[in-house]
Design a protein around this nucleic acid. Structure first.
Lengths: 262, 262
DNA sequence: TTACATTTGTTCGTATGTATA
DNA sequence: TTATACATACGAACAAATGTA
């Protein structure tokens, strides 16, 4: 990486031409993270070290890291170091779980966020249908894992999830490993398969409960439920998981992300 | 504002004690913005001027402004200045309008975002019911404006909105002014009433269409529709508007904010 | 077209404070 | 106590965009 002036063009990849230096540094960092040498337990090299290695000032390096922190790719901990953002329960609740108990109009005390009890109802290997293939960007008919989960809050079933994963991407995944995972699903992807989910696209609609959903959620067939289609993405917006969640919104709400942030 | 050391304590408000200097500066800026002297057309004083006035370095001032820019409170324009973020159509579409046409599975071309055609169906002054009062943090029975809108995309009604505004806050609002506003609703609040909506909390659920909603959206009564409860907030999380949107999701989706951002 | 002033954007470097082990 | 790492704060120089004389 070189100073960005006209007489000495930067010695980076061609696409980086004319990008600000801190953006180029950001890309370098993304590559380093993507390579997977730094799990959630092991800090990246210190800012001083990285600045030296990439031949930029500490301020420029921090600017790049700042952006990755804002995107929840990295987390900084003063005195300890900078880490790839771990997929712990707190992150799952904040970034990926959008169901909260309905406010009681007579009660001002806000319900605290509650981690759902998850039970796996089905685990199968099958061929991708057209929708799954399109979402996961694989060829129709390629192998996928199809998983069915029931999520309960305070003992009552509230969400029914159907996941589709590319079998190519999650080679050697078994029902046993899936069920006996110690943390969240995305932590499993991260630690066991080196795949870090960075963000998700979600589209929601209201539909009448199908027979399968009605049974899972203990509702009459045809009851309006929310159906959320989520595509979880990793670096380069590569699809990782396609998930359809059906939510019983009789006593719970779907809470949009931004409502949680400051 | 003073240098933050032990011998010369900072001369700011007591609550600011021990806050980093750039956070104190951020609060000062928020006060300046809140006072309303700087509309969306008039730039704030330049960074150099503000840094001098607040007796901090340019870097510290920029740090404070950076945060306000990230929160969409301010926008910077190189060569022109820094402005209170205007409520134009682009911002409305990005931050506050979450309805998009459903993807056609056979078609990869993404539908471009389309601004809805809004028609006002009702405008009335009434007394706040319990729900509205709680949401807007006013006393039950206080005067509110209650407004009903229909939103159409490509000529088809898709959303039915019911708004509640505190009449105290929007003194002198009339149906004529509301209907003949040149820009978005939030632009009206901003330019005509000095109230800048900063963010919104949203909770969504699936419900059967009521008679009123069914009529507005040309649907059979009981059809599942999405009902989105939005509370729009200004500085200090003060409630500005309480809105219930009913969405026909037969051909459209509710798209969560984060799906739009990078 | 040119030149210039103004404003934000980028990059550098240094010093000091605070949290952690 | 010491060493390490991130956090805050200062200041300077130049680049890039904008508007105007």
């Amino acid at each position: 990486m070189q100073v960005n002036n006209k007489t000495v063009p930067p010695q980076t990849s061609p696409a980086d031409e004319s990008l600000p230096l801190y953006r180029q540094v950001k890309r370098e960092l993304q590559k380093i993270i993507e390579d997977g040498h730094y799990g959630p337990g092991k800090p990246l090299p210190s800012e001083a070290t990285l600045a030296l290695a990439l031949q930029v000032s500490i301020g420029t390096l921090r600017h790049a890291v700042d952006e990755l922190v804002h995107e929840h790719v990295l987390v900084r901990r003063q005195g300890k170091g900078t880490f790839v953002a771990p997929h712990n329960r707190a992150r799952f609740m904040f970034q990926f779980f959008h169901v909260e108990p309905r406010w009681d109009p007579e009660d001002d005390t806000p319900q605290e966020q509650e981690f759902p009890e998850i039970t796996c109802m089905a685990f199968a290997r099958d061929n991708a249908d057209a929708l799954e293939a399109r979402a996961l960007r694989i060829k129709p008919g390629e192998a996928v894992f199809r998983i069915e989960n029931k999520l309960a809050l305070r003992g009552r079933p509230v969400v029914h999830d159907r996941l589709a994963l590319s079998a190519m991407m999650f080679r050697n995944l078994t029902e046993k490993r899936f069920i006996e995972r110690p943390g969240t699903v995305y932590a499993l992807y991260q630690t066991d398969f080196g795949i870090t989910v960075l963000r998700a696209q979600e589209r929601a609609r209201a539909v009448p409960a199908s027979k399968a959903v009605a049974r899972a959620l203990a509702l009459p067939v045809g009851t309006p439920v929310m159906e959320v289609h989520r595509l979880a993405l990793t670096f380069g917006d590569k699809p990782v998981e396609y998930r359809i969640s059906s939510i019983n919104t009789q006593a719970h709400d779907y809470v949009s992300m931004l409502s949680k942030a400051s």
